[in-house]
Amino acid sequence: MSAAEYLLPYDFSPLTILTYITVLGLYSYGLFSMPNSDRPGAGRIFTFTLGVLLCYGVMQTLFDYYSQYMFFVHRGQHLILHHLGPILIALSNPLPVMQYLYRQIPKSALPFLAPVGWVYRCLQHPVLASLLFFGLIYLWLWPPIHFDAMLSRDLYWVMNWSMLIDGLLFWWLIFDPRSPATTNALGYGKRMLCLAVVAIPQMVLGAYIVFARGMVYDVYEVCGRAWPMPPETDQLLGGLLTWIPPAMMSILGILIILRRAMRDDTTSNVSNKAAKEATQ
């Protein structure tokens, strides 16, 4: 097989390609035209691009073919769409670029964007965000729905896009670069609580799939696998991918937030001290 066959989409989706081009286009436009002082450094630009390209790669290359016909590859695909890709994008802190782009929107158009803001604020309620995060995993892995999603092209696209969008929302809520001390961003304690709360149901589901004696997802049996592999092995690997990496990512997330909270504490202590000394 040639390199082109690996890199070209298995299931060509113009809308998906257009969305990725728009996102990267807007990001580069923002980077080039924004003031030098606000521009993110090379490391952050690389992290953002890597996150976006990873998500693109699992949706519009031959990887998508294997995701459709191997359960464990499908779990890997969702691990990237719902976890790794959005984590990289959120950690790259594209906020300055987004703020610059927001300022370019004509004032007259802002009232029309208000409903988007309402929906966004609702979805970013920590309870709803956590519920949606593991709820979507349960929804798409509920065997009858999983079966339909794998049989219907439309439903399959809805599944992958809903996982990506929810991943971006959740991890943006968690890794919001603004400090909760000075803005209305979610407090560090609540962020860590969200991470712990979503880890548990994922571990339970993963363990259930790993230890299931029968076939939980027979759609791969019904529709044929990409290559002959024992169904038990496929299910076991898929279960492990649902169980271990997401749990690890929650813990890593908690550590990152903890470090941020400690750093914020130190800076606020230093400034408090400075303020005290200044008054004395």
Binding site: Y65, Y69, S152, V222, C223, G224, R225, A226, M229
Partner: peptide, 27 residues
């Protein structure tokens, strides 16, 4: 055709006698 019906098939590496298994839809 198989892509249209969300199924696929794959071939195993042939053995010494040229026999190989084929994975395909069971439905």
């Amino acid at each position: 055709l198989s892509k249209r019906y969300r199924t696929t098939f794959g071939y195993e590496e042939p053995d010494d006698k040229g026999n190989y298994a084929v994975s395909h839809s069971g439905a």
